[in-house]
């Protein structure tokens, strides 16, 4: 907004904006140029700032060496799984909390709220153990109830039941633990609270069941919020680091962001920075494209989540 004419300040504004954009963009530009050079050019000191013609070779080399095809596929499954899972779980959760009155409602709300204070980083090992043996906590109950004996009697011969079920190195393991989200539930709850009471009353008067109301009224009204969350949660899911690092040991199940550091040249290797940068560009491309092309939803979603 220009309230008065301030030529000096205006020049300053434009200069600093351009400088800011250049500074913020420089690491990517530098990586992009490095990814187009050959090994001789990239290890020349200082590196040439004129792009070379090796981009395609470097990209395919990074793709093969880092097994990026498999890892990008894994990242895609994980990011989409987390996105869809989070949105479905949070939509139903918020619907339950806002549109029903039941005894344990505040307990449920508090339980969801408190997950805010338990990011995976503060419960690394026990969450890993849980995923490694999903029904572990139930085993003592099972043993205490002597269900083995009952089943043995039922089947007619001795049987030992071991509730062993591991989520390690599986898509379910990558996705499930990250699908509960307090922030998404709050966003939908906040939004549902702004929906006029009359809509619900009218629906009830027309004899609509709660689920009809949900699918015919709430869901269509929530579409913009869902679009915003799709962008944010996809980026969140794609960029997950700690959890996939813990839960996957099989290189075929690793995600692209984690696999990337295998492309980093160690001191003994030839300085293949052009390959590493080509790999980094490939892996960052999907979320960057999502954010740039869905910028409007993205900004809306980010800012709404604050409330």
């Amino acid at each position: 907004m220009m309230v008065e004419k301030t030529p000096v300040l205006d020049t300053f504004t434009y200069v600093s904006l351009i400088l800011g954009i250049v500074v913020v963009g420089f690491p990517i530009l530098y990586a992009l140029i490095a990814a187009t050079l050959s090994i001789e050019e990239v290890s020349r000191v200082p590196m040439s700032m004129i792009p070379g013609d090796q981009l395609f070779n470097n990209v395919s080399e990074a793709w093969n060496r880092g097994d990026l095809g498999t890892q990008l596929f894994n990242s895609f499954i994980m990011a989409s799984g987390i996105t869809i899972g989070k949105i479905v779980v949070s939509l139903f959760g918020a619907f339950s909390i806002v549109y029903f009155d039941y005894r344990l409602r505040s307990v449920a709300f508090a339980a969801v709220f408190c997950t805010l204070m338990l990011p995976v980083e503060v419960r690394i090992l026990p969450t890993y153990e849980m995923a490694a043996n999903l029904f572990g906590p139930l085993q003592p109950v099972w043993d205490a109830l002597r269900l083995d004996g009952i089943i043995s009697w039922f089947v007619g011969h001795d049987i030992e039941v071991n509730l062993d079920f591991s989520l390690l190195d599986s898509y379910a393991g990558l996705i499930l633990p990250l699908t509960a989200s307090a922030t998404c539930t709050f966003l939908f709850r906040q939004f549902f609270l702004t929906i006029p009471e009359e809509l619900c009353e009218a629906a009830k008067m027309d004899g609509a069941s709660p689920m009809t109301f949900f699918w015919k009224v709430l869901f269509p009204l929530s579409k913009t919020n869902i679009a915003a969350l799709v962008v944010i949660e996809f980026v969140y899911g794609w960029n997950q680091y700690l959890w996939p690092l813990l839960i996957t040991t099989n290189p075929k199940m690793t995600t692209a962001v984690i696999g990337l550091h295998h492309l980093l040249p160690s001191p003994e290797d030839p300085p293949d920075w052009h390959i590493a940068m080509a790999g980094a560009l490939i892996v960052m491309l999907p979320p960057v494209l999502v954010v740039l092309f869905m910028q409007r939803w993205f900004v809306k979603g980010l800012v709404e989540r604050e409330k």
Binding site: V88, V89, S90, F92, G93, F95, S96, I97, F100, A108, A111, V112, T115, L118, V122, R123, P126, T127, E129, M130, A131, L134, P137, L176, P177, T179, A180, T185
Partner: peptide, 17 residues
Amino acid sequence: LILPQILITLTFFYWPA
């Protein structure tokens, strides 16, 4: 409706915590 969320938070948040 709230069951999936509660199950996930109990299994992967509260129990490990």
